[in-house]
Simulated scan of single mutants.
Amino acid sequence: MTLKELAKIAGVSPSTVSLVLNNRVGVGDAKRREILDLLEKYNFNIPKKSGFDKNLMFLKYIRHGMIVEENAGFISTIMDSIEAECRNEGYNLSIIISENCLENTLQNIDFTKFSGLFVLGTELDATSYPLLSKIPIPYIVIDNIMPGFNCNAISMSNEEMVHRALCHLAAMGHKSIGYLKSSAKSQNFDERAFSFRNTALELGLDFDEAHEFLLEPTLLHSYHDMKEYLKKGVSLPNCFFADNDTIAIGAIKALKEYKYKIPENVSVMGFDDIHFAEINSPSLSTMSVPKKLIGFTALKHLHMAIENKDFCNVKTKIGGEIIVRLSTQPCST
């Protein structure tokens, strides 16, 4: 009998049976006893941990896809890094995709076959965090620091990196600044917005609320959204910071169509250093995120969590570097 078949007899999800098998909290005493009795009744073959200590899973969660799928290789580079590191360390990695059905996905995973789990948290919102509490094996959330929620997590140091980006623009003599802000919510974007406003105030930069443009974080929609602002004849600052490179590149295309010269009229700085940043015209100045390092560190931390139950609620932020290209230049006014 498989775990899924036994779960059906018990009238629970496979993940609930996994919780009982792994002696985890989250199942009431009566239901736990019922499941244990069924395990005994059907002589359920409980797999020994040693048989699965090299099996890991990567759960790619997609809520709307605008950040996970549209940011031109950012997530895939992290996933490729994890896959390569797993091969190097002798782990078997399975990948599962959950499209806006996280609860159902978690209920149907047979966790007894895996010793650890990576959860892509880029598009996770706070309302979904509690669903992760039912995961009965060690796991680490990637690309979301999960504030206020106890778990292992790794992400980039958004606040510090935005601070460095604005300091760089200020050092080039820019006084007025605009914000190309994502219209889609994410924890990373929230942290960048917080740092943008605080840093602009700290540096004495002139930030007018009218210069905050909400753009959808896809190449096509950021371009169209920026054109809608330009059609209204809005005034522009002498530089922009964008929530990510995808937004910056779409906005630059719209600005060029309206005869703005980049960077002579407006400097633009992005965030992430995706592949398109270097080949864009002009090439995009940006904050480079060490994507391969995130993947490498995620595996190391998951391994430690598997080996040591006290390795828990470890939150890691990884910093990045400024990449100066042709979309920014010293202010001439």
Rank of each mutant, 00 (worst) to 15 (best):
T2G: 01
T2A: 05
K4E: 14
L6D: 11
A7T: 10
K8G: 02
G11C: 14
S15H: 03
S18F: 10
L19M: 10
L19I: 08
R24V: 05
V27I: 10
V27Q: 10
K31D: 07
K31T: 09
R33P: 03
R33C: 02
D37A: 14
D37S: 11
L39A: 11
L39Y: 12
Y42R: 03
I46D: 02
K49V: 13
D53Y: 00
M57H: 11
M57Y: 11
R63I: 04
V68H: 01
E70T: 06
E70Y: 09
A72V: 09
G73F: 14
D80F: 13
D80T: 06
R87L: 14
N88D: 15
N88Y: 12
G90M: 05
S94A: 11
I96F: 11
S98G: 03
N100H: 15
E103R: 13
N104D: 15
L106I: 14
N108K: 11
N108E: 14
K113M: 15
F114C: 00
Y129L: 06
S133N: 08
P136F: 13
Y139F: 15
I142D: 09
I142N: 07
I142P: 03
D143Y: 01
I145G: 03
N152S: 10
A153S: 15
S155M: 04
S157D: 15
C167F: 00
H168S: 04
L169S: 01
A170E: 00
H174D: 04
L180N: 01
S182M: 11
S183V: 12
A184L: 06
K185H: 08
S195D: 01
S195M: 06
T199L: 00
T199I: 02
E202Y: 13
E202W: 03
G204A: 05
L215P: 08
E216T: 07
P217M: 13
L220A: 15
D225W: 03
K231I: 07
L236P: 09
L236K: 14
C239L: 13
F241C: 07
D243M: 06
A248E: 07
L255E: 03
Y260I: 04
Y260G: 09
P263V: 05
E264K: 13
E264L: 04
V266T: 04
S267W: 01
N280C: 11
L284G: 00
T286L: 09
M287R: 04
K291I: 00
I294M: 10
I294R: 13
A298V: 07
K300W: 00
I306Y: 12
K309R: 09
K315F: 06
G320F: 01
V324E: 07
R325Y: 11
T328L: 08
C331L: 12
